[in-house]
Computed example of a mutant assay.
Amino acid sequence: MFFLSILKPLFKPSVNALLTFMEDASVLVIVLTFFVFWVGCWLPVAGILAIFLNWQPNKPVQPEQKIPLLVSLYLLAPLILWGVNWLSKKSFSDYGFIVNISTLSSLGLGLGLGVLSLVVVFSGQLWLGWCSFQKSNIKLVLPIFLPILLIALLVAAIEELVFRGFLFTELEQDYPIWLAAVISSLIFALLHLVWEQRETIPQIPGLWLMGMVLVLARFFDSGNLGVAWGLHAGWVWAIATIDTAGLITYTDKVSDWVTGKNKKPLAGVAGIICILGTGAMIWFFL
């Protein structure tokens, strides 16, 4: 305590200067500060995990390697964002992340809408004969049902807080709403290239459109992230469950640009229709 009492006056001017700088900083400086600190704090953690997971950056990330890396990255985001908020005197509620009953209700609504939209799209593909349903794999769903849901909720919560919350809100201060939505959605899409470039490149337009619809979901939820969080989680949950359990097999009756390049719905016309249809439902019914 004696040493702290000596050091505190030495650090106080620097802290005050930093607080003043962040309060007067431009939107781009605040955004860059967050992403630089986020990645900078994660890299040492990623390095340690890479050793234990035997992961090499120049090789594709395997699913069993990606999940620990992804979770460690995402768990750091709220802490870094809290620090940036403290410096700029803001809170998570400024970004639409409010913990209350209304948010939980919106979360459930978005979750149901996300799953329903994919059920409709895949039902249409099954009816057209573009894919087939593997009934024998239904038994594989139960063991993975809850774990995938929890991961989906975590991933969606962090991504919505960062991109539709922090990034969109900050950009909105200096740019028109439509431009803030376009830029934040583009950054959201491009950052997915960090994990898998070959499979992600065809998904970039779909990911950008997904970001735009999620901004729309926040707009129609009175600025809160509940619907966007649930919608995002519902999509991740449904797609990850289908892929992990092998519930769908494509028949190759149409081009994979229709059903989804590399079996990724967002890289095909069907996925784009799903996103556009969901956006239309939000626009007309929420």
Rank of each mutant, 00 (worst) to 15 (best):
F188S: 00
G226K: 00
V194H: 15
R218N: 10
P205H: 13
L225G: 06
V213A: 12
T200N: 07
W229T: 11
Q203I: 09
D221Q: 00
W229K: 12
E196K: 13
M210R: 04
G211V: 04
P202M: 08
E199T: 14
Q203G: 07
Q203C: 12
V215L: 01
I187E: 02
Q197F: 10
S222D: 14
D221W: 01
D221I: 02
L214K: 11
Q197I: 13
A189S: 11
G223V: 05
V182I: 13
L209I: 14
V194E: 13
V215W: 01
W178D: 01
E199W: 13
G206A: 07
L231G: 02
P205Y: 13
P205D: 10
A217G: 09
L190T: 05
G226E: 04
H232M: 00
L209D: 12
L191E: 08
G211T: 03
F220D: 09
G223L: 08
Q197S: 07
M212D: 03
L193G: 01
R198N: 11
W229H: 15
L216P: 06
R198K: 14
P205T: 06
L214I: 10
G234I: 07
P205V: 12
P205C: 13
I187H: 02
A228Y: 11
L207P: 12
F219W: 15
S185C: 03
Q203N: 06
L207N: 06
L209S: 11
S185W: 04
I204T: 06
G226I: 03
G230P: 02
V182P: 02
G230T: 05
L216V: 05
